[in-house]
Design a protein around this nucleic acid. Sequence first.
DNA 1: TCTGTAGTTAAACAACTATTGAACTAAAGG
DNA 2: CCTTTAGTTCAATAGTTGTTTAACTACAGA
Lengths: 91, 91
Amino acid sequence: MANDELRVKIFKALSDETRLDIIRTLYVNKKEMNCGEVMGIRDTSKSNTSYHLRALKEAKLIKVRKEAQAKYMSIEIDTFQTYLPGFLDTL
Amino acid sequence: MANDELRVKIFKALSDETRLDIIRTLYVNKKEMNCGEVMGIRDTSKSNTSYHLRALKEAKLIKVRKEAQAKYMSIEIDTFQTYLPGFLDTL
DNA sequence: TCTGTAGTTAAACAACTATTGAACTAAAGG
DNA sequence: CCTTTAGTTCAATAGTTGTTTAACTACAGA
C-alpha cells in the first residue's frame, strides 16, 4: 500500500520494449554488462542506451558498479523480489 | 520471451496511480464493482474513469460483465498469474 | 414518451517520453 | 600531451498520455 511512487516508476520503466530487453538479457545471462554490451542488445545509440539505463536505475531495477571509466550493470534483485516477485522467471 | 506487446501494455496500464488504485481495490475487496463505484475510489469524472478502465481492459487486467445498463468489473486473475505472479499480494 | 441513470466518445490541450545528433566529461594508454 | 574509449548531457522534435468538457448512446422506470 505504502510507496506507490516507486511502484509507478518501476512499471513505467518496464513498459518499454528496449528496457524489457535489457532486463531480460541481464537476467538470463546472469552476469554484469557494461554500457557498450547493453547497447548491442538492440541496435541503438550510446545516448539512447544511457537514457534507458537511467530509467532502470532510477526505478532501482538495476544497480551500477563503477570501475575506472567503465560501468557494470546488473539486476537489482531485491526490488524485483519486493515489488514483482516471480516476474523475472516469466521472461 | 514471446508476447512483449501485451507485456508492455500491462506495464503501461499499471504505471498510473489511479489504475493501480482501481486494481488494488478490486483485488482487496474481492468483488465486482460497477463504473460508479470505481469512480468513487478516486475523486474523478465518469469519462476519466471510463478512460482508465479501458486501459485496464485492453491490457487484460480486468474483465467486464455486462448486465442491462450496468457493467461490472473484476480482476482478470489469469493475466496476473501469467505475467506478474505474486504481484497482487504485494498491494 | 419523458426523465434519470450508466457509461462511451470526441476534441482540445498540457505534460511527458523516446529518439537523434552534437557537444561534453573523465580516465587509460601510448 | 594527445588520442581513444566509455559514458553523460543537452536541445530539438515527434509521438503518446492523462485530464477536462460537452455531446452522445442506451436502457429503465414513472
